[in-house]
Structures are given as C-alpha cells and as structure tokens.
Design a protein around this nucleic acid. Structure first.
Lengths: 118, 118
DNA sequence: CTAATACGTTACTATTGAGTAACATATAAG
DNA sequence: CTTATATGTTACTCAATAGTAACGTATTAG
C-alpha cells in the first residue's frame, strides 16, 4: 500500500485521465456516461484509462445489474499531496500560507459553495 | 505558461525524475554529481531526465566554466499543488485541516528546522 | 601544450502506452 | 424469446519513452 505511489503518479500523468477524475468530482458516473464525454476516443480507449485509474485506487467501480458505477476515491490524491507538501515543506512557505487561507475559507464557508465543473 | 501543466505532470510521473528532484531539495548539484547518484543508469539516461525536468521548468541550470549547476525550482510544483488543492477543495476537508496545521507549524517555527534528506 | 574532467550529441534498441476496430457477453425491457 | 443496452475482450497499430553505447567538445590543471 506504499509502492503504488508510482502507479498513482503514472495515472495522473495523462491529461485524459485527469479529465476523467474531474468529471467524477461531480459524482459517480456510469462507464457509458464517461465514454460519451470523450467523443474523440473509442470506448475501449476510455475503458483502458479507467482501468489505470482503478489500479491506482483513484476510482472505485461497483456493479449494479449491467451497469458499472464509477466513483472518485480521493485517498490516493490526498496521500500524494500530503507527502509532497511535507517533503518540500521548507520550500512551501508562501504556498502553505495560501493553502492555509484556503483551508480557513473553506472551513468557515462550510459547504455553501458546491464545487463546479472543470 | 499555462499549458505546460501537462509537461509538469509528465515530468513528475517518472520515479527517477522525482528522485532527482529529491536530491536537489538539499541544494544545487553539478550534473556529474547527479549522475553519480544513479549508478544503474547511463550518464545520458540521467541527462535526458534532466532535460525533461528542465523543460517542465522544475530545474534550472546555469553554467560556471565547464560546470553545470542544477537547482530546483519549486514554482511549477506549487502551481500543480495549488491547482489541485483548490480543484478538489470539496473533498479535501480533512486533508486541508492537516495542511493548515502544517502551515501554522512551519509559520511559527519559522526556519529553525532545515529540511533533511529523503 | 597535454591530459583529465565535465558535459554534450548522435545513432540506435526495446518497452510501454495510447489508441482503434471488431467481436463477445450479459442483462433489462417489451 | 428477442432486441437493445451496457459492458467486456481480443488482436492489432503507431508513437513516445526509457534506455544504452560510443563518440565529440570544451575547459581547467599542471
């Protein structure tokens, strides 16, 4: 559960896969729904990306009849972010302060603002 | 200066390149010094990785006689981190609070703690 | 000037990754 | 049962990436 960090980075390195994650931020999607969002790609093309995301633990898929419901799992993202934040801690100073502001904002605003599409 | 985000992600996707960045966290290094840290790779192998890092803006290189001094540039890292932190804001809640703590820590401790090796 | 050092480049191989087309299976609806 | 839908799979390109070997250049030390 620690050496899959490579997998996570690999998964995130592709723009299409990041787009898929973006899409899933808005909530779970059927495989077909995801495929429809990428008219330039074949279905299998998208499905292979999905598989990479699944193997990296970034996406969970559960079956419901003949449907597959794909949902985002932020845990690996969090892992990477936290790891890098602390790793480069000494360099972060300014960034951290900005993130701190962000944290306080989102803490005080609670969940008034729903996140919006990419 | 905005569509190189892809490049940055690509650059970060390779474990060797992340190791190089880790090495540069401790301060600037000559090309040869970096090469020596990777006995399993040929010099040119390492140099190609360096080039990718340079093109992504993650590493700056300045000449000093016949020496090349490579140093870390965290700006692109910051870009990506900030972008993703805010993008997944709604999912971050717990993580953000931890980062907030980190920020306050490092703010109060100023720069007492020098960062240490990987 | 000569030799050693630090770096750069050319030319090539091999593996992985992204992608398509076409076929196969399973399930829900009528 | 039959059809349409949702998904899975096999077989195959094509391009990019990671990598090596070997040679070339430039600069500093003596």
């Amino acid at each position: 559960m620690s050496e899959n960090l490579d997998q996570i980075w690999k998964a995130l390195s592709d723009p299409t896969r990041r787009d898929i994650l973006d899409l899933l931020r808005d909530g779970p999607r059927l495989t077909t729904e995801i495929v429809e969002q990428f008219p330039d790609l074949s279905r299998f093309g998208v499905m292979k990306h999905m598989e990479v995301l699944r193997e990296a633990g970034l996406v969970n898929t559960r079956a419901d009849g003949r449907k597959r419901i794909n949902s985002l799992n932020v845990t690996p993202l969090r892992q990477i972010m936290e790891r890098w934040m602390s790793k480069y801690e000494a360099y972060w100073t300014n960034a951290l302060l900005r993130v701190k502001d962000l944290a306080e904002e989102s803490a005080s605003e609670e969940k008034k603002t729903k996140h919006k599409r990419a």
